[in-house]
Design a protein around this nucleic acid. Structure first.
Length: 489
RNA sequence: GGUCAGUUGGCCGAGUGGCUAGGCUCUGGUCUGCAAAACCAGCUACGGCGGUUCGAAUCCGCCACUGACCUCCA
C-alpha cells in the first residue's frame, strides 16, 4: 500500500513529502534522555511522538532503523563549558559511581517507556560508549580547519564555519545577533569567539568523569555525541532527525555544523521537532521545577494531581494533540482523555456483540482512508482519534438497532481499530488483572449470583450492601437487564 | 532586544475559502427496584480592527495578548 507521508521539516519550515534516501528504508535519529533524573511528562512527548512515526513508517512498508541515544556524559550542569558534568555532580552528591546513576535512571526510563507502550528503538547507543568515535570526529573537524585547541580543550570555530556555511539556518539565528546576545561566561577567554562551542573539554582535577584524548584528559562537548553516533549508525547522510523543540538551538544547530565540518555533507534530510508540554501555560521543565514525573502520574502522588493516571491515559492525552502544538496539562484534560479512551475501548469490545445484517448498505471503507489521510498529513493523530470516535458511535448505534452493519462492515471496523488504535497509535486495553484472575472472576461471579437471588426476593437492602462492599474493594457492579457486569477499577 | 510559534465554544483540542471535527463538562432522555455504568440527544465557537472575495475562523495588513528559544532542559 502506497502512502505519501508529509512531514513538517523544521529547516525549510514547510511540510514536505517524505522521500527516503534509500527506497524502502528509513533512518531516524532522535535525541533521547539525559539519565540523571526520573523521566517526567515532558519526556513522554518525544518518546511517544517518534514512536508513532517509527510505527507508521514501518506500517507503510519501510524498513526502519531507529536510533535513540542515552546521554550519560557531556551535558554540563551550569554555565556552559566551565560547568560540571551533570551526571558527575549528581554522582558526587549521592556518593556513588556515575555509571551507577546512569544505570539506575536508564533502567527506570526503560520501564516507564514500556508502561507507555513505547517500542524500543533499533539501537540505543550511549555517549560514554562512543568516546572513541567522538574523538575521531573531532580530529576530522580539526583536519578540516573548523576547530582549534585552547588550553587542552577543543572548540568549534563558528566564525570560520560561517564563511563557508550557514550557521544558524535551522534556528533562524544570525551570527552577529548571537555575538551581541551571548552572555559572558567563565572560561570564555579560552574561546576565540563567544559563539564557539566546545568539542572536547579538559577536565578539572575534581571531575570524576574523564577520558584520555590526544589533547587532554577530559570529556566530549555536549553536542558531539549525537553527531558521532548518528553518523556511525545511520551514515553521513540520513533521513530523519527528531527531538524536542527546545533542542533546536543550540544543540541541533551545532550538530548540523559538526557533521558538515567533519563530513562535508548535510547530514539530515528532515528535521522533526515536537512541541512542549505546558503547565499553567508555561513549559514543564527541569530548570523551572514545575515538572511531574511519570511515576507521579502513575501513582497520583503529587500535589497537583487529583488522582492517578494510567500510562495509556497519558499516551492518549498526548496523541489528542498534534505533535507540533503545545499541549497544556490539567487534571480536567487528563480526566477527559481517560474517559474518552475508555469509551473507545468499550466500543471496540462491543464490536463482537453486533449482529451482522448483510442487507446493510453502510459504507465503512472511507474511514480507513480518512485515517491514512490524517496520518499522512504530518501525523495528525487527533484527526485519527476523531474518526475512531465516529466509528465508536457507529458500533453503539448498531448495538442499539439504530444502524445496520454487514459482516464486511464489521470486519472493516475491526481492522480499523486494530490498525490505527493498536498498531499505529500503540494504544492498548489496560486490564487490571493478575495471575489469580481466573479465581477472582469466579468468586466475584459467585457473589453476584447470590446477589441476583437476593434481588429476586426483593431484598434490596442486602443487594445494595453487597454492591457497596464490592465497590469499596474496587469492584464496580453494573446491573443489566438479564444479569450483571462488573469491572475492577 | 533578536528569532520563531500561537490566540477556536465552560475545558482540551482538529480544521478545508462556502458543506456546523472530535472528546470532556453541562442539560435532557433510554435503561434500572434504586443507583452506577453504558448508550442516545441538545449546546453552531473561531483575539481586535481593516482589506481581498459573491462568500473567510480559513488569504493579506496592522494592533493586542500568550508562549518558546537566545544558558542545561524533551
Amino acid at each position: 500500500m502506497q502512502q505519501n507521508l508529509v512531514l513538517y521539516n523544521t529547516i525549510t519550515r514547510k511540510k514536505e513529502e517524505f522521500k527516503p534516501i534509500h527506497e524502502g528504508y528509513a533512518g531516524m535519529y532522535v535525541c533521547g534522555p539525559t539519565v540523571y533524573g526520573d523521566p517526567h511528562l515532558g519526556h513522554a512527548r518525544p518518546s511517544i511522538t517518534f514512536d508513532i512515526l517509527f510505527r507508521y513508517l514501518q506500517h507503510i512498508g519501510l524498513k526502519v532503523r531507529y536510533v535513540r541515544n542515552i546521554t550519560d556524559v557531556g551535558h554540563l550542569e551550569n554555565d556552559a563549558d566551565s560547568g560540571e558534568d551533570k551526571i558527575a555532580k549528581k554522582a558526587r552528591l549521592e556518593q556513588i559511581e556515575p555509571m551507577e546513576v546512569v544505570q539506575y535512571y536508564t533502567d527506570r526510563y526503560h520501564s516507564y517507556m514500556k508502561d507507555l507502550n513505547v517500542l524500543p528503538p533499533s539501537i540505543e547507543p550511549r555517549a560514554s560508549g562512543h568516546i572513541i568515535e567522538q574523538i575521531e570526529m573531532i580530529k576530522k573537524i580539526l583536519e578540516n580547519g573548523f576547530a582549534y585547541e585552547s588550553n587542552g580543550s577543543i572548540y568549534f570555530d563558528v566564525p570560520k564555519y560561517s564563511k563557508s556555511y550557514d550557521y544558524g539556518k535551522l534556528s533562524g539565528r544570525v551570527l552577529d545577533d548571537l555575538l551581541s546576545n551571548t552572555r559572558v561566561l567563565d572560561g570564555q577567554q579560552e574561546k576565540h569567539h563567544p559563539a564557539d562551542f566546545a568539542l572536547w573539554k579538559k577536565a578539572e582535577p575534581q571531575h570524576i568523569m574523564r577520558w584520555p584524548s590526544p589533547w587532554s584528559d577530559g570529556f566530549p562537548g555536549w553536542h558531539l555525541e549525537c553527531s558521532a553516533m548518528s553518523t556511525k549508525y545511520l551514515g553521513e547522510e540520513f533521513d530523519i532527525h527528531g527531538g524536542g523543540m527546545d533542542l533546536l538551538f543550540p544543540h541541533h544547530e551545532c550538530e548540523i555544523a559538526q557533521s558538515q565540518a567533519a563530513n562535508k555533507k548535510e547530514a539530515v534530510h528532515y528535521w522533526v521537532h515536537n512541541n512542549l508540554i505546558t503547565i499553567n501555560g508555561q513549559k514543564m521543565g527541569k530548570s523551572l521545577g514545575n515538572f511531574i514525573t511519570l511515576e507521579e502520574f502513575f501513582t497520583g502522588n503529587h500535589e497537583l494531581l487529583d488522582k492517578s493516571y494510567s500510562p495509556m491515559t497519558i499516551r492518549f492525552f498526548i496523541l489528542q494533540a498534534q505533535y507540533r502544538g503545545t499541549l497544556d496539562f490539567s487534571n480536567e484534560a487528563l480526566q477527559s482523555s481517560e474517559k474518552g479512551l475508555q469509551r473507545l475501548m468499550t466500543a471496540y469490545s462491543a464490536i463482537s456483540k453486533i449482529k451482522p445484517d448483510n442487507t446493510a448498505e453502510t459504507n465503512t471503507s472511507g474511514l480507513a482512508e480518512k485515517c491514512y489521510k490524517a496520518m499522512n498529513d504530518d501525523l495528525n493523530t487527533p484527526m485519527v482519534i476523531s474518526v475512531l470516535f465516529e466509528t465508536a458511535k457507529l458500533i453503539n448505534e448498531a448495538n442499539n438497532g439504530k444502524q445496520r452493519l454487514s459482516e464486511t462492515n464489521i470486519a472493516e471496523i475491526t481492522k480499523l481499530f486494530e490498525t490505527f488504535a493498536f498498531e499505529i497509535m500503540g494504544l492498548k486495553n489496560e486490564e487490571k488483572q493478575n495471575d489469580d484472575k481466573g479465581k477472582t472472576d469466579e468468586l466475584i461471579d459467585m457473589i453476584l449470583n447470590v446477589r441476583m437471588d437476593v434481588k429476586a426476593n426483593k431484598d434490596y437492602a442486602t443487594a445494595d450492601k453487597i454492591r457497596d462492599e464490592l465497590q469499596k474493594m474496587g469492584v464496580v457492579v453494573k446491573d443489566k437487564k438479564d444479569g450483571f457486569e462488573w469491572e475492577i477499577q
